[in-house]
Structure formats: C-alpha cells, structure tokens
Design a protein around this nucleic acid. Structure first.
Lengths: 145, 145
DNA sequence: CTAACACATAAAGTTGACTTTAGGTCAAGG
DNA sequence: CCTTGACCTAAAGTCAACTTTATGTGTTAG
C-alpha cells in the first residue's frame, strides 16, 4: 500500500495531478483510510495504463470509461481488447506521421548545412525540386506531399 | 498568388486558423492588395514548415521566432540549422517513446486475447511477471520500466 | 506546546491553440 | 437593386488538462 506522495515519487507525477485523476474517476475502486487515499498494486498498474493510453492520444474521459470497464470483470474483456487494438492502430499511424515529419527535418538540416557551406541558397534552388542528391531527394519527396 | 480560401483548401486548414497564424506573425512578409491577403509560394512553403515544426512539438511563439529569422537572410542560417537539429532529436525521442507505448498496447492486446480465450485472467497471473511467452515477455519488459 | 509535514477539499486560475461571433467591405449574378 | 459569397477585423468564447489557492485536519519532532 502506498500514499499519494509515494505514488507521486514513483511516477514523477505531481500530487495534484494524481488527485485530479482520482477526481475524474480514473481509480474507481481506490480505498481510503480515514479520508487518506491508499494506493495498491492495482492502482499502480492502473497508472501505468493511464500513462500508456494518454500517450496513445486518448482523453481523460475515455480513460475513465475504460477504468469503469475493468470493474465489470470478464464481461468487458472484448470491449477492452477492442480499445487497445484501436489505440495500437492510432499509435502506428502517429509514428508514420512523425516519420514523415522527421524526413522533413532531416531535409531542412541538409538544406542549411549546404546553405552555410555555400554562403547562400543559390545552388539549392538550382537543384529543386527534382535534381537533389538521391538520398536527400528521397527525404524531400517524402516530406512534400 | 493564392487567396486565403485557396490556401485553406490546399492544406485542409480552416480559414480562421490561417488568419490566426497570420495574426501571430507566422507570415512576416505576407503581401496584401487593398486589405486582402495574397499568399505566394513563399507562404506555401512557410505553411509546410509550420506544419512540420508544429508536428515536432514546437509552440506557435517559437515558430514565429523562426519565421522572423528567415527574414534576416544568410545571417541566421546557423540558428535555423540548430533549430532543425534540435527538433530532429526531439522527434526521434518522441518516436522512441511511442514505440514503448506501442509495446504496452501490443502486450495488452495479447493479454485480452488470452483472457477472452480462457474466460478469465488466472493463467496470465501465473505467467506474470517473468514466465510469459518469449515474444510477449519482451513487450512486457520493454513497457514496464 | 507548537511548528512542520503530509494529507485532504472546493473552487478558481492558467495555458495554448484555436473557433466563434458580431460587425463591415466589396464584386458579380439574376 | 439587392442578395450571395469571399474577404476583412476585434473581441469574446471554448476546451482539455492541469495547477494554484485558500482552508482545514491529523501526526510527529524538537
């Protein structure tokens, strides 16, 4: 059993944020001893799931819905699985998007390295849009539509 | 030359958002003809950069600073390159983080597939925390610190 | 005994990135 | 001529996710 302060330490999350999560219903079965929250391993795992679902782009109110499902036992296995499948696809798409962003950033790094070496952007303009060095051309094409 | 409506179409961004970007100073040299904004290829490329920097996690006020640098010509090449290098590292870190999130999600998908097959979570609890199938163990370990 | 801590609440405030609203100009079509 | 549609502005409103503030309780250390 942990206090809110210990959980805060453990996850490097402010105490106020954990109280906020509790207020929003993210710990449906959290116990209390004379008003004081007592966090068990169940809540520790819940917080890991909260961080995961948050990182996947889910909003607090939807995380709350999920946490309510966990109190229904085996009746909600299918819904819970569906949620994780959907989140998995969303994160895969997000990673793809970031990969394209990364290609644009790499292109811009090359762009300014070249501009610094030349003192101007003239030579780059002559190479644009389809006479760039092969590896750079790939980045450029991937990033520009 | 494009009107704000054409740019809105081109990028699938609301007109109000483009006006907001302009108000925030993201198009430092935007021309106007009797009050009406005229977007050139320069602004089209600027908007591509805005989307890229936004996706990299940069805030509007910092994107504004970058756009001001572009009006300084070759004097700011070094600063601009530095910014893209930093953003590149931030996005690489973000992708790593999302990869760990993805491993957690894949683990949870397996978890509920197994729970659905068994009708309960008993067998999973017996495998936790270090007797999981090898490929699943990898996901679990990667996701749990 | 009292001061310092860790805990608690309710309610108000903050932040960033938009979006909406209310009002106005101007050119073209029926 | 008058309505429609695309443009304009300034200012207020929205939303999610916290954070801060003001106030209070209960236990422990000097």
């Amino acid at each position: 059993m942990y206090t809110i302060g210990q959980i805060s330490e453990m996850f490097s999350i402010p105490v106020s944020t954990i109280r906020y999560y509790d207020k929003e219903g993210l710990f449906p079965d959290l116990e209390r001893q004379s008003g004081i929250r007592k966090f068990s391993e169940r809540e520790v795992e819940a917080l890991r799931v909260i961080e995961c679902l948050k990182a996947s782009g889910l909003e607090i109110r939807d995380i709350k819905r999920f946490m309510e499902w966990t109190t229904e036992g085996s009746a909600s296995y299918e819904r819970r699985k569906q949620l994780f499948e959907t989140r998995k696809e969303a994160v895969e798409e997000e990673i793809n998007q970031l990969q394209r962003t990364l290609d644009m950033l790499k292109f811009k790094c090359w762009y300014y390295e070249t501009a610094i070496a030349d003192g101007n952007e003239d030579r780059i303009y002559e190479m644009l849009p389809d006479r760039l060095p092969p590896d750079i051309q790939k980045l450029y094409d991937n990033a520009h539509h």
